[in-house]
Simulated assay, not measured.
Amino acid sequence: MVDKRQYLRTPIACRIKIVHAELGEMLVKTRDLSDGGVFVLLDPEQAPPIGSFVTGQIQGLVEDAPIVEMEVVRAEPDGIGLRFVTQD
């Protein structure tokens, strides 16, 4: 299988608050992070649908992290892949 990833993924576990318009707010953990997005661990029944948008904010830092918009781009049994949405 050919790896088509554009960005190098870095394994990292931290808490992130995800907010979805219909599903509300959830506090989950990350599995990995890249310049293009993040993979978060959650149960499939909690997962927003592919193509939907969420906001996310890393938790537990000394200062408040920025809130970023992300799109759900893939789902796996242990979580979802989120792509950072750039504001042009």
Rank of each mutant, 00 (worst) to 15 (best):
E25W: 03
Q57F: 01
R83Y: 01
P48T: 04
L23K: 15
L61Y: 13
T55Y: 13
E22Y: 03
L23F: 12
A75H: 14
Q87W: 07
V19Q: 15
G81Y: 00
K29L: 09
P49D: 01
K17I: 09
A75L: 08
G56I: 11
V38T: 09
D32M: 04
G56D: 07
P77Q: 03
F39S: 00
G24M: 06
I80A: 02
D88R: 12
E25Y: 02
P66I: 02
V85S: 07
H20S: 07
G24T: 00
D78T: 15
P11H: 11
P66N: 09
I67K: 14
G36Q: 02
V19D: 13
V54S: 05
A65V: 01
G60P: 06
M26Y: 01
T30C: 04
P44W: 01
V2P: 08
F39A: 02
S52W: 02
P44D: 05
I16D: 00
L42I: 08
K17D: 10
A21E: 14
H20A: 09
S52T: 15
L27M: 12
M70W: 03
G79R: 06
C14F: 12
L8I: 06
P77T: 07
R74V: 00
V38S: 04
G79S: 09
E76Q: 10
V72F: 02
L27D: 05
E69G: 03
G51H: 08
E45V: 15
C14E: 12
D43R: 13
T55I: 08
E25T: 11
G81S: 08
G24S: 04
F39Y: 13
I16Y: 03
P49T: 00
P77C: 01
Q87L: 11
V62R: 15
M26N: 09
G81P: 04
V40Y: 05
K17E: 15
A47L: 05
T86S: 04
S34W: 06
E22K: 14
T86K: 06
R5Q: 05
A21Q: 12
V68S: 10
R9E: 08
Q6R: 14
A47S: 14
Y7D: 12
D78V: 14
V28D: 09
L23I: 07
R5C: 03
D32N: 15
